[in-house]
Design a protein around this nucleic acid. Structure first.
Length: 268
DNA sequence: CCAACCTTTCGTCACTTTCG
DNA sequence: CGAAAGTGACGAAAGGTTGG
């Protein structure tokens, strides 16, 4: 059965119909019916070693666009790196704005409201409002705030100066953010995560490892989304280029026929 | 109506490429 | 050179389609 999978997977991605998902399905079905999982992994590795990669979609499309003026380039996203994102400006007088290690912005207003924005999002869902459940003195434990995040489910941790540490305490559809008292004071505006050197117990190390894994998975999830978006854009670009070339080809054929008629008029 | 099949979308892993 | 980003492959899940 492996020959089948090899044949499928060795097809160059550009040659495939991206809108069709049955290829994945067929491969999956083949994998499921194979009773040797170990050989599958080994074979998968061999196949990947043999597979040659081609440049990224962004690179290909940008090369295409440099050749053909009509094709737009895929722009690098810069908004998250150039100061406060636009949607932050709509907030109600935040006293502090922080950026997490994953690029999210967190603003804490004087009234205790917390807003989290995802700079990479489309702006509609990028801003989420949180309301702290305590407005006075914090309890000995933690203040739990919740928000309905559509994309972020990785664990994050960052410090809020003067009083608290914000920890994303749970993963899943409804992550929980906890505002905790920090063990040490941090300077204003510093955003940092717990470093391995500051951890002591095996449990803390395990939590740190879990946090890192969640962060990595979240980043990879977002990267995969972005990659698929670029791939779609790339395919659209190719399709439009095909359409343009077909029109050009048709015109050239017509022109050729006209010239033929002129050069060799019929003698009837 | 429902089971079987198809299509699409998404998360994850493993690996490659890019960047500082 | 290591970290981060990008991407192909894979599997799962959900929704759509179709024939009995």
């Amino acid at each position: 059965m492996w020959w089948h999978q090899h044949n499928l997977c060795f097809r160059h991605p550009i040659e495939e119909d991206y809108s069709s998902g049955d290829l994945d399905k067929k491969v999956a079905t083949i994998a499921e019916t194979d009773d040797s999982a170990e050989s599958e992994v080994i074979d998968s590795h061999k196949r990947r070693e043999i597979l040659s990669r081609r440049p990224s979609y962004r690179k290909i499309l940008n090369e295409l666009s440099s050749d053909v003026p009509g094709i737009p380039k895929i722009e690098e996203e810069k908004s998250e790196e150039e100061g406060t994102p636009p949607n932050i400006a709509t907030m109600a007088v935040p006293t502090s704005i922080y950026q997490t290690s994953t690029g999210q912005y967190i603003a804490i207003a004087q009234g205790g409201a917390i807003q989290i924005s995802n700079p990479g999002s489309d702006g509609v869902q990028g801003l989420q409002a949180l309301t702290m459940t305590n407005s006075g003195a914090p309890p000995p434990g933690a203040t739990i705030v919740q928000y309905a995040a559509q994309s972020a489910d990785g664990t994050q941790q960052f410090f809020v100066p003067g009083s608290q540490v914000v920890v994303q305490a749970a993963t899943g559809d409804m992550p929980t953010y906890q505002i905790r008292a920090p063990t040490t004071a941090l300077p204003q505006g510093v955003v940092m995560a717990a470093s391995p050197g500051s951890l002591h117990s095996p449990q803390q190390l395990a939590e740190e490892a879990t946090r890192k894994r969640e962060l990595r998975l979240m980043k990879n999830r977002e990267a995969a989304k972005e990659c698929r978006r670029r791939k779609k854009e790339y395919v659209k670009c190719l399709e439009s280029r095909v359409a343009v070339l077909e029109v050009q080809n048709k015109k050239l054929i017509e022109e050729l026929e006209t010239l033929k008629d002129i050069c060799s008029p019929k003698t009837d």
